[in-house]
């Protein structure tokens, strides 16, 4: 049951959570467009898109959506271990 963040084989199906940072403030209304992920606007003018990603090809699908909108990508970070905390903390 332990969630090991690294050294995972690509076959493990458990969805990972990712934090994707882009340049510009993206309105929260885009949440549905990004399949219900959470959008947080940061003070430094970036937006963090955060939520579960089923697998690598879903992640690439997400990149494609960003690229389609011309949104410049700043960083992509897997955020393991937060899953439980996030569920309780996120009221939306």
């Amino acid at each position: 049951m332990t969630d090991v963040p690294t050294g995972r084989t690509p076959n493990v199906p458990a969805p990972e959570r990712y934090e994707i940072r882009i340049t510009g403030h993206l309105a929260p209304r885009w949440a549905n467009w990004f399949d219900g992920m959470t959008l947080t606007q940061k003070d430094d003018g970036t937006t963090v898109i955060h939520g579960p990603v089923a697998d690598q090809s879903a992640l690439h699908g997400l990149f494609r959506k960003l690229s389609d909108l011309g949104l410049p990508l700043v960083s992509v970070t897997p955020t393991p271990g937060e899953a439980a905390a996030d569920h309780t903390a996120d009221p939306s």
Partner: peptide, 17 residues
């Protein structure tokens, strides 16, 4: 135009899912 279509679609998904 692709970009405009995406914006419209995002509005639709947000306002009238």
């Amino acid at each position: 135009h692709h970009l405009f279509a995406d914006v419209l679609h995002a509005h639709l998904l947000d306002e009238r899912p």
